[in-house]
């Protein structure tokens, strides 16, 4: 499966639709999020036409995440991280850490080599760069991590603190609706791994207004792996095996799939081995 929003999404389109998408959607919408130097170091980035202006007069600011990162990532990641979305702040934020305490300058600026997607960056941040497997303080944690190794279960699946924003039913020009949710299922990029999924609000007629039918809509699911930013050391899943192994709490089920969604969604339903 390809990486990068544009490359992945293109799988849903015919050759003719790809051209329309480039012209009427990508340039006017997707690319408008991409920041320049000044958007992070001199003024806050313009989001949805809202311009908050200079960060601190005409000074060059090294970092001020709440006035820069927070604006582009203010729909999901940032308010989930600070707890403003659902009252569950991330353990790293609780201890005074901000975006760039985990996400390095290299990760943000790159090294001059064009990349197809941020997920392909070698120096992308991961939990295990700081929390080395085997360095756990208790035998219980060591054993739990050994059994649920990252190939089978992502860190997020166990350590996401609670519900996060899921957006539904997006239509060009009309936006989408959102509500809190918590979904565990197979990672669409690595089907053997259980992880936190987030609903991507693209529905069959999202781009109808611009003449895109998405002829290959069912090639991609409506749920995608998500690095949810409300991490907790202990959760109902880390405290009690039954939460997943007996109750199967928050696991994606057939009856919960979004109506009229992609046929690929069913592949993400996780069943325990009998």
């Amino acid at each position: 499966m390809p990486y990068g929003l544009k490359n992945v999404f293109a799988e849903r389109l015919s050759a003719k639709e790809k051209k329309i998408f480039e012209e009427k959607v990508f340039e006017k919408s997707c690319r408008s999020c991409h920041a320049s130097c000044g958007d992070c170091h001199v003024k806050s980035p313009v989001v949805g036409g809202v311009n908050l202006g200079l960060i601190k007069g005409h000074k060059f600011i090294k970092r001020d995440e709440s006035k820069t990162c927070a604006l582009c990532h203010g729909g999901r990641v940032y308010p989930e991280y600070t707890g403003e979305y659902n009252g569950i702040s991330d353990v790293h934020y609780q201890k005074g850490m901000m975006c760039m305490d985990c996400h390095s300058i290299k990760e943000i600026h790159g090294d001059g080599t064009p990349q197809l997607a941020r997920k392909l960056l070698e120096y992308k941040n991961t939990c295990t760069k700081c929390h080395k497997p085997g360095s756990e303080k208790t035998d219980k944690a060591k054993e739990a991590h050994r059994i649920h190794d990252e190939g089978k279960v992502s860190c997020f699946a166990c350590h996401v603190g609670g519900e996060y924003r899921n957006c539904y039913n997006c239509h060009v020009g009309e936006g989408s609706t959102s509500k809190p949710g918590f979904i565990l299922g197979r990672n669409p990029r690595a089907k053997n791994q259980l992880t936190t999924l987030r609903i991507v609000p693209t529905v069959r007629d999202t781009f109808k207004k611009v003449g895109i039918k998405m002829e290959n809509f069912d090639k991609l699911p409506n749920y995608w792996d998500s690095a949810v930013h409300n991490i907790k050391k202990r959760t109902d899943r880390t405290r009690n095996c039954d939460t997943c192994h007996t109750e199967k709490k928050n696991f994606l089920k057939k009856e919960d799939l979004i109506p009229n969604g992609s046929r690929a969604n069913e592949e993400l339903i996780f069943e325990f081995k009998k």
Binding site: D64, S66, T82, N86, G87, K95, G96, M98
Partner: peptide, 30 residues
């Protein structure tokens, strides 16, 4: 206080542990 305001300026020798770490949302209650 929030991490970003703490980082911008704080009392020397103080440490930052956010309010919502001490008073959490649990079982649907704040």
């Amino acid at each position: 206080r929030k991490a970003d305001v703490y980082k911008a300026k704080h009392i020397p020798n103080s440490i930052n542990v956010l309010y919502s770490a001490w008073a959490i949302e649990k079982s649907g209650r704040k």
